Simulated assay, not measured.
Amino acid sequence: MVKLTKRCAATLGTALAALLIGTGGAQAADDGSLLSILGLPSVTLACFPVGQAGTNNQFTGTQNISCSQSASQTNPAPTPPTPPSGGVTGAYTAYSSEPALVPANGVNQAVATCPAGKTVTGGGYLATANFFITNQFPTVDGTGWGVTAAGQGQEGTITAIARCVDGAP
């Protein structure tokens, strides 16, 4: 009885190892091929004899066991994702018409306006001195970008930049 238990345990252990190492159990796909537990093509094949004849797993005579299996694996090319419809078009960068003078101890503001038919998506500024930027903002109508700067003992200019795209605000 101990020999039979050890033999069964060894056979089951081997079968489990083959199953785990071979990317999982196989299942039939719609086209008759094999798929692993992960849904990928399987190349794992195993042949385990069953139904031993005789008493106490002993027999006299001959016993024929045959196993014939084959498999192949193909990896189909991935399908590229479909780009979303619509999207952003007509990107354009607008600058304020002329730089705004910021006095050494004063404050000034510059505004860049998008061309007709475009809306602002963001913006920034160019500065000729080390200013304190007190505010950056889209204009109320959504067609421009403003920046407010305060001089810190230095006089200079500030230019607003608007990033615009097609579409009305």
Rank of each mutant, 00 (worst) to 15 (best):
112 A>D: 04
3 K>Q: 14
47 C>N: 13
110 A>C: 06
117 G>K: 10
21 I>K: 00
109 Q>F: 08
47 C>R: 08
61 G>I: 03
168 A>I: 14
8 C>N: 11
153 G>R: 02
81 P>M: 05
167 G>D: 15
48 F>D: 11
158 I>M: 11
36 S>K: 02
67 C>L: 11
72 S>N: 06
60 T>D: 10
72 S>L: 03
126 L>E: 01
62 T>Q: 15
102 V>E: 01
36 S>W: 05
2 V>A: 14
52 Q>Y: 12
12 L>T: 13
35 L>R: 01
104 A>D: 09
22 G>T: 09
24 G>M: 03
127 A>F: 05
166 D>P: 03
31 D>N: 14
130 N>D: 12
130 N>E: 12
84 P>W: 05
137 F>D: 09
33 S>N: 04
119 T>R: 15
148 T>F: 01
47 C>I: 09
65 I>Q: 04
134 T>M: 04
57 N>S: 15
46 A>P: 06
142 G>E: 11
149 A>I: 00
154 Q>G: 02
26 A>I: 01
73 Q>R: 00
128 T>V: 06
43 V>W: 00
111 V>G: 12
39 G>R: 02
90 G>P: 13
47 C>P: 04
62 T>H: 15
39 G>I: 07
28 A>P: 14
18 A>P: 08
156 G>E: 02
47 C>M: 05
102 V>L: 06
20 L>Y: 13
72 S>M: 05
17 A>N: 07
24 G>R: 01
36 S>R: 02
165 V>E: 10
111 V>R: 04
61 G>D: 09
138 P>I: 07
61 G>N: 05
24 G>T: 07
142 G>N: 12
115 P>K: 05
42 S>R: 00
141 D>P: 08
11 T>V: 14
116 A>L: 08
45 L>Q: 10
68 S>K: 14
146 G>N: 09
37 I>D: 08
90 G>Y: 13
8 C>Q: 07
149 A>W: 00
107 V>R: 00
100 A>Q: 02
96 S>Q: 04
169 P>S: 15
5 T>H: 12
68 S>A: 11
116 A>C: 01
154 Q>D: 09
66 S>E: 06
19 L>P: 03
95 Y>T: 10
5 T>N: 15
15 A>I: 12
